[in-house]
Design a protein around this nucleic acid. Sequence first.
DNA 1: TTGAAAGCGCTAACAT
DNA 2: ATGTTAGCGCTTTCAA
Lengths: 343, 343
Amino acid sequence: MAIRISDIAKHAQVSTMSVSRYLNTPQKVAEKTKLKIITAMKELNYQPDKIAKSIAANKSFIIGVIIPDIKNPFFSSCIHTIEGYMNYLNFNILLCNSEEDSEKESKYLDLLLTRNVDGIIIFPISVNSVIRLKHTKTPFVLVDRRFADVETDYITVDHCSGAVAAMEHLIKLGHRNIAFINGPGALFPYAERYRGYCKALKHHNIPLDDALIRECAPMQHAGYDAALDLFQQGDRPTAVFLGNNLISVGAIKAIYDLNLKIPGDISIVAFDQLPSSDIIRPKITCISQPVEFIATNAAMLLIGKIEKTGYKNVQKVTLKPELIHGQSCCSPKNQNANANIFI
Amino acid sequence: MAIRISDIAKHAQVSTMSVSRYLNTPQKVAEKTKLKIITAMKELNYQPDKIAKSIAANKSFIIGVIIPDIKNPFFSSCIHTIEGYMNYLNFNILLCNSEEDSEKESKYLDLLLTRNVDGIIIFPISVNSVIRLKHTKTPFVLVDRRFADVETDYITVDHCSGAVAAMEHLIKLGHRNIAFINGPGALFPYAERYRGYCKALKHHNIPLDDALIRECAPMQHAGYDAALDLFQQGDRPTAVFLGNNLISVGAIKAIYDLNLKIPGDISIVAFDQLPSSDIIRPKITCISQPVEFIATNAAMLLIGKIEKTGYKNVQKVTLKPELIHGQSCCSPKNQNANANIFI
DNA sequence: TTGAAAGCGCTAACAT
DNA sequence: ATGTTAGCGCTTTCAA
């Protein structure tokens, strides 16, 4: 076994408590004692055991972060920001990739709770997880998603108004035949984006046409398949709203594979910035979420709850996403013209 | 406090040891006792405390993973694969983002060691970290990087031969004026890629020209700045080899901003697949690393060492990366022709 | 098959 | 300012 504080204590001829005190509240230890301890530590090359400390102090300095897909740049950016913040405060991150799978989420939740993590940041999949969390004393914050019927702290984006903005943009250009490839409607963000899609259509008296809507896993290959299916229909829509970044990449690939032009044959607006967005031509018009802001706030909120220095009340933060103009949209009339030019 | 095994024991009228045994080696507990324990656990809703178990059993079921940049899709893919593998075996991942900063790496290493993690997967920055690790009893595996003078298990890609392949491709097309925007030469992968760059030039008797080489942080903005600087020189190279995926995105953006065409004005080969590579036009010719394979093997190797079921000997794995042909290269003669067409 | 006692490395609470 | 004692929740060891 490794060196323990009792070894240091013996070596320095003080009590273990003095050593422990030196480690935690050095100002409460006399200089003379301190010196003896420091020397002993150096001589024995002491390394504290955080696990033992966790159990004794009932604090682990570990934060659990449950995210749906670490390969998705939106989430990996979030975790990057959270990591930076937490590292600064000497908290560590236990990484939990739920893959949008509520069973895996549930399993990870068990795990985090039995590990006595100090807090949990969760991009939740199922309400049940959140309800379970509410029954524990572990502080937690929901990110990106929330549930109307459960009162919790959360920080999300207004996915619905983002979708409305996307649709308004297309409708103003003259599109009425607008397809939508969305992520799983069972998940909050996609349900909200769907709501926004419908809302915008309704506002402009455009009938909702189920044939124009596809729902698929929020992954590139799924977006590809959905787009392929959608655009091979006889009556091709003039525009499409894409439900997330990875779906967008897949759908755009499908559009290219079908030899269609953007925006020549089809206008697109994506939810989320695309990976490598700076070098994708045409530049894709998108709804951009304030990633840094979301993640930083989530981290701050959680720490506030852990340290009990934050607001006492439940904090609910909803941010507005932003439409970023690219060159992936034009009016349906120009489309035909353009298309002819390119043929 | 939560329910402990002693509570279960009392409730079930058995000893704590029986409960502990049931939890760990149920086959050593009589059916009758087992039943009593199960009932008590259900009634009291028992949740084991993994931390207490860690300290008593001296095993944490936590793996530390130290990676340089979680926002880089190469690394986030690695961690995704590692997570999947470890999750399956009920190991958890403590996420450490070193940001290619050896101090942060060192700090994280301290932390992992004091937390008694069961093993460490590290994409190392400094030799010192590795030497320190060797002095501990914690099993570890190096990934992506290795150090010639320290004997350890590792799994890497032959960055040098990858660079040679990239250069050979350009040279065969007729390029002799090939620039190189590399990551920090102090890091193993970039040092090796540089070695490959030089080796290929030498092999074809092309003199090494420092004016064609830039070294920058392995980030998009740095690649952008380097490329802007490089291509604004009077005597523009006909081709450029880009040291990693993020540098590539930055450099390509710079090329576009300078109104240059790929491959019309400049041919490029990138190390690593680019994010969204499927929809980037022209398709970028690149050196692709077998990410899944690297990460899976790293995880397997580590688990083998932890469980002591793996090979006793030090395992050294070096994989060959692969050239993937795109449309980002052409011969320098055609370049001028093409350039004219586009002008 | 079961249990009692001791201990993992540390800290909280209470002395002195 | 320092030390003593007890205990965090679990497992290991040894005995029954």
